[in-house]
Design a protein around this nucleic acid. Structure first.
Lengths: 140, 140
DNA sequence: TACTTATTGCTAGTAAGTCTCAATAATGTC
DNA sequence: GACATTATTGAGACTTACTAGCAATAAGTA
C-alpha cells in the first residue's frame, strides 16, 4: 500500500503544508485496504475536525491519491489509489469490500469504443459489482 | 423512446396503481432524452409533491425503467433505460448530455474479467466521460 | 523570535433525499 | 353508484453528506 509519506508528498506537490491533522489522516488512510466514507474516517479521528477531513480528502482526490467510487447507494465511498496507476474497482455488494483490478483489455476496449462514438473520450469509469470470495452468494 | 404507457406498465408490474401524479411524471419523462436530476424533474412538475417524484423515480429504478448515472460531481443524475437493454452511458463533461451506447465488446470484456477475479460478478457499470460533438474541447 | 500565510475547527448553512402522517384517490364489492 | 379497503399523496420536519465563513492557530521563513 501507499506509505503515508507518499500521501503527504502528494499533498505537498499541490503546495500544501504537512500539518498534524493531515499526518493523522494519512496514517489512518495508510491502513485502509477497503473503501471508506469520509464520515467514517472522521469518526475514527475525533481529534480532527470533520471539515478538515473533508478538505483533506478533497485535496487527496485532486492529487489522485484517492478516488471516488460510484456506489449504487447514496453514500459516497472513497478508496486509495496507487499513484500512477489507473485502476478499476470491484465492489462486493454484500460486504462492501473493494478490490482494485487492472486489465490491459479495459484500456484496449476503451480505445476501441472511443473510435465508435462521436466526441472525445476524456475519462472512463468501470466498476464491477461482485459477491466476493468471502461472502455467501445466496440466490441471485 | 419509451412511450409513457410502458413506464406506467413497468410500475403496474410492481403492483403499483396508475395515479395522476405518476402519469404526469411518466409523460414528462417520456420527453427527456438527456439525463436529469429528480430535483429538476420536481421543479418542472410543481403540481406534484417532491416526495412523490422521488418515490416514483425510486420505483422506476426498481422496475429498471430508469437508471442512475455515476456522475463525477455530487448531483445524482438519472436517465431513461430502454427496457430489456443493458446500455452504458457516455456523459459529456461540458454540457451534460447523455448518450447510450451498446458494445458487444463490453459484454465480452466483462466475462473475460469475471474469469480473472475472485468471486462472482453480478453487475457492472461502465461510463465514459466525453466532450461531445457539440461542445468545444478546449485544452484538456 | 517575529511575521506571513495556510490551515484548522467551530458552527451554521445547503442540497439531496427520506420519514411521518393525516388527507385523498384507486380499486374491488355489493 | 355507494361503500369499504388499501395504496398513494403532499407538506413539512428530519437526516445525511458536504460546504462556507471566520476567528484562532500552526507552518514555514526571514
Amino acid at each position: 500500500m501507499i506509505p503515508d509519506k507518499e500521501l503527504l508528498a502528494a499533498l505537498e506537490e499541490l503546495g500544501c503544508r504537512a500539518t498534524a491533522p493531515r499526518r493523522a489522516i494519512a496514517e489512518l488512510l495508510e491502513q485502509k485496504l477497503d473503501s471508506f466514507t469520509v464520515e467514517a474516517l472522521s469518526e475514527e479521528l475525533p481529534s480532527v475536525g470533520r471539515a478538515t477531513v473533508y478538505r483533506t480528502i478533497k485535496l487527496l482526490l485532486e492529487a489522485g491519491a484517492v478516488c471516488k467510487l460510484a456506489t449504487i447507494d447514496v453514500s459516497q465511498m472513497y478508496s486509495l489509489c496507487r499513484v500512477g496507476h489507473h485502476d478499476h474497482h470491484s465492489v462486493c455488494i454484500q460486504c462492501g469490500a473493494v478490490e482494485e483490478f487492472r486489465a490491459a483489455a479495459v484500456e484496449r476496449l476503451i480505445s476501441a469504443i472511443s473510435a465508435e462514438i462521436p466526441g472525445e473520450v476524456i475519462d472512463h469509469r468501470i466498476e464491477l459489482y461482485v459477491v466476493c470470495g468471502f461472502c455467501p452468494s445466496d440466490g441471485e
